[in-house]
Design a protein around this nucleic acid. Structure first.
Length: 221
DNA sequence: ACCGGAACGT
DNA sequence: ACGTTCCGGT
């Protein structure tokens, strides 16, 4: 069952110098397959983000509409590219869209109804799971960031985009490296990963979002 | 096109 | 866990 397509590792991780699409800032973890907590393989939403970030694919998939919303302009091509990456030669949009649907429950994506081939990222969710954003939120006590009484804590709302592009950009470009002792208590010093014993009021107490919780010391969905 | 169940593979 | 494949239904 050997497949002759290029391995993920050979896919040059674009030595990204903080590049972002017009109006949207992206953290580097979005491009690193291994940076997704539970996964060694490339994730579909990583891949989507990757395409979204490259200008040469703007005719294939691009940001459009609301914040976090993107439209697949060429479904067959996106499916083809995903098939190449995953060594699934028989990939097509029908199957790809099924995979995207998988993210609905995980609350990473949802569908923009009425708009063809249009989906929307739940960046707040994605960020919460993958990036140590919370210490920033904790540090900037005055910031209303993420603490809006939105769908978090109150239950699973239809969508939860409390983050603005500006907020994201600010957070991700924040030069908080090399600040000794500036570590927020939300993180264990050794692993630099999110601690699970911290109270996250906006995580809805994990209700319906998966009871397991403490996987590998990382928050999961 | 879009949905979600189910079985399956890794 | 993260899809992939197949499917009947809207």
């Amino acid at each position: 069952m050997d497949c002759s397509c290029v391995s993920d590792l050979l896919f040059a991780p674009p030595a990204l110098p903080a590049l972002w699409t017009p109006g949207f800032a992206f953290p580097d973890w979005a491009y690193k397959p291994e940076s997704s907590p539970g996964s060694r393989q490339i994730q579909l939403w990583h891949f989507i983000l990757e395409l979204l970030q490259k200008e040469e694919y703007q005719g294939v998939i691009a940001w459009q509409g609301d914040y976090g919303e993107f439209v697949i302009k060429d479904p067959d091509e996106v499916a083809r590219l995903w098939g190449i990456r995953k060594c699934k030669p028989h990939m097509n949009y029908d199957k790809l869209s099924r995979a995207l649907r998988y993210y609905y429950n995980k609350r990473i994506l949802h569908k923009t109804k009425g708009k063809r081939f249009t989906y929307k990222f739940n960046f707040s969710k994605v960020v919460l799971v993958n990036y140590p954003l919370l210490d920033v939120a904790a540090a900037t006590t005055g910031s209303p960031l993420l603490l809006s009484p939105g769908p978090f804590g109150g239950g699973p709302g239809p969508d939860a985009p409390p983050l603005t592009p500006e907020t994201l950009q600010t957070l991700f470009s924040a030069p908080r490296l090399g600040e000794p002792g500036a570590r927020a208590p939300l993180f264990t010093p050794e692993t630099d990963k999110l601690r699970l014993d911290s109270p996250f009021p906006f995580l809805g107490s994990g209700k319906g979002l998966g009871p397991r919780g403490a996987g590998r010391g990382m928050l999961q969905l």
